[in-house]
Simulated scan of single mutants.
Amino acid sequence: MKIIIAGGTGFLGENLEKYFTEKKNQVYILTRHPKRSNEIHWDAKTIGAWADALEKADVLINLTGKSVDCRYHEKNKQEIYSSRVDSTRILQEAVNRCIHKPKVWLNASSATIYVHSEKNLNTEENGIIGDDFSMNICKSWEEAFFKTEHNEVRKVALRTSIVLGNNGGAFPKLKMITKIGLGGKQGRGSQMVSWIHIDDFCKAVEWIISNEHISGTVNITAPGPVTNEALMRKLRKKLKIPFGLNAPVWQLEIASLLLNTETELLLKSRHVYPDRLLKSGFRFSYPDLDAAMENLLKS
């Protein structure tokens, strides 16, 4: 296949590129700072020579977006919004111009689209979508994506949870704080953590590409969400760290200021279930957290 990954130089993009390249696919990356022969320059805002790459592509994957790991002041809020919505709109414009359009377009979204929930398990069908900055970003993102329909382009929005891997994302940071004795619960610890192993993330993307009946929104998360307290306890046990200091909310507020981030990233309860993936026949390699952690810590 010819696969185009927009915004493909981050943690998820690098892993997808490796996964699909090893399976003998042609993978091209749209990036602001191209360095390799398969990387193509784009600014994620305007049509340019990059748009030609979409012609006769089998797959378009859009992962573009400013990291939410920052302070939510007005400038950052605007960049978080525009980087997601503008890139989706300009890709749509490029797709519209294609004579031979991509067969399937997967656009990033987030499991953060669902409300803070410790009890209600959010599936694609019954998930409760709320109204705050993060949820409204996701809603605008998906709205821009699904606004235009083409019979020949199948569209899927990937509502992805926290992805666990060794070469980026949250897991290396969680390991680090646990090793220095700070691996207790964050806040009350009852907030649910929805997660997925990086290998299963890549497998799920391949599964969606291969299964032509899948379109619309899909929760990309393992079927076993756990509480924050259970997550940290399991990690301490695997790392053989006997204790971990708990971090009350007031401490997290101070730490988030110092680390230039937001407490929401730790305290929001994301309780999400991959109903559509499971019903389509997808099999997780790491459906439970113990096996996922064991694999990551072994490698």
Rank of each mutant, 00 (worst) to 15 (best):
D58F: 04
V59G: 05
V59T: 12
L60E: 06
I61G: 08
N62F: 03
G65R: 08
G65T: 08
K66I: 11
D69K: 08
C70R: 09
R71Q: 15
R71K: 15
Y72W: 15
E74I: 14
K77W: 08
Q78T: 13
E79I: 11
I80S: 02
Y81M: 13
S82I: 05
R84Q: 09
R84G: 09
D86G: 11
S87F: 04
T88Y: 07
R89M: 04
R89D: 05
R89V: 08
I90D: 03
I90A: 06
A94V: 09
V95F: 05
N96H: 14
N96G: 07
N96P: 04
R97F: 03
C98Y: 07
I99S: 11
H100V: 11
K101G: 10
K101V: 11
W105K: 01
W105Q: 03
L106V: 05
S109W: 06
S109E: 14
S109H: 09
V115Y: 08
V115I: 15
S117T: 10
S117M: 10
N120K: 15
L121S: 15
T123F: 11
T123Q: 14
T123H: 11
E125D: 12
E125T: 14
E125L: 09
N126L: 13
N126M: 08
N126H: 12
I128Q: 07
I128F: 10
I128M: 10
I129M: 12
G130F: 06
D131V: 13
D131P: 10
D132V: 13
D132R: 14
F133V: 10
F133P: 04
F133A: 05
M135L: 09
N136Q: 15
N136W: 11
I137M: 12
I137G: 02
C138Y: 04
K139F: 11
S140M: 13
W141N: 03
W141K: 09
W141A: 03
E142Y: 02
F146S: 05
K147N: 09
T148Y: 00
T148L: 04
T148E: 07
E149L: 01
N151V: 00
N151D: 12
E152P: 07
E152S: 13
E152F: 01
V156Q: 03
V156K: 01
L158C: 12
R159Y: 02
R159F: 01
S161I: 00
I162N: 02
I162F: 06
V163F: 05
L164C: 00
G165P: 05
N166H: 13
N166V: 12
N167R: 14
G168E: 03
A170D: 11
A170S: 15
F171Y: 10
F171T: 03
F171G: 04
P172A: 03
K173R: 15
K175V: 00
T178N: 00
T178L: 00
K179I: 00
I180Q: 04
G181C: 05
L182P: 07
L182A: 11
G183A: 09
